[in-house]
Design a protein around this nucleic acid. Structure first.
Lengths: 131, 131
DNA sequence: GTAATTGCAAAAGATTTGCCCCATT
DNA sequence: AATGGGGCAAATCTTTTGCAATTAC
């Protein structure tokens, strides 16, 4: 097992993720982190996000239709709502039905993660035309 | 409303999607289509896939962790199981719990699509170590 | 005939990687 | 001091786009 270090960069990235509620992209995290570490590079941000994702600390959310990945802390299980109008990504509770879901599929051996994305329009954008 | 044409290219792409069960990438569809249309270009494949997706005929599935999008026909509602070992993508039935799911979220105005991805290992890869 | 669509190649966008230096342990 | 991690820039991979030529209607 490789020994990992607590670098300032990694800490800052985690802090940003902890404080942000908007599911930032790597680029957004990069810009934000530069306020504290003006010399941090985008590559470092990506490397850390991948590291933290593989470690299970953060979660990568790939937008349903193009654009960059967005990230959040993988503390509690939850689903995501994605507003197609304003592009907001909101955490929503994972429907209880899913938590206890048993997959009666002989093709499935083990389930490690359930990823539920609800796509639609949020209330701030919403009420008006649904199309 | 723009008038759309039935080009040979579009037809071939749809046929490939109809016959394939492996959720091919644009690149795979490109290679396959070249057996019939040796001069088709990758750009055309992408343009058609985007067109068909926007039209609601095909569905684009973005893999949870990098790599290219995969596609399938959007005929019946279903969820996807993604094997992290062999990278297979399987159609699985959408849990009934989800079809009737009501989102009691004041932040959600309208839901247009529910996307459920189950990640884990499939039976062919599976039984052995879950890690 | 007209406009949607193609092929090609270049461009754009997102992410990864090599290399060498620096900092954490 | 050892080596994991960082900075920078180049490379890679995926997808999009401009444009002139083609083709379905």
């Amino acid at each position: 097992m490789k020994k990992t270090r607590n670098t300032r960069q990694r800490g800052v990235i985690l802090d940003i993720l902890r404080e942000s509620h908007e599911h930032p992209t790597a680029e957004m995290i990069y810009r934000e982190s530069r306020r504290v570490l003006p010399h941090i590079s985008l590559g470092t941000v990506y490397r850390n996000l991948n590291f933290l994702r593989d470690q299970g600390t953060v979660r990568e959310i790939r937008p349903c239709e193009g654009g960059s990945s967005r990230f959040d802390r993988a503390d509690t299980p939850h689903a995501h709502f994605h507003c197609v109008r304003c592009n907001a990504l909101l955490d929503i509770p994972l429907p209880p039905a899913l938590e206890s879901l048993r997959f009666e599929e002989e093709r499935i051996s083990a389930v490690s993660l359930i990823d539920l994305h609800v796509i639609g329009s949020c209330s701030s954008c919403g009420e008006a035309t649904t199309n």
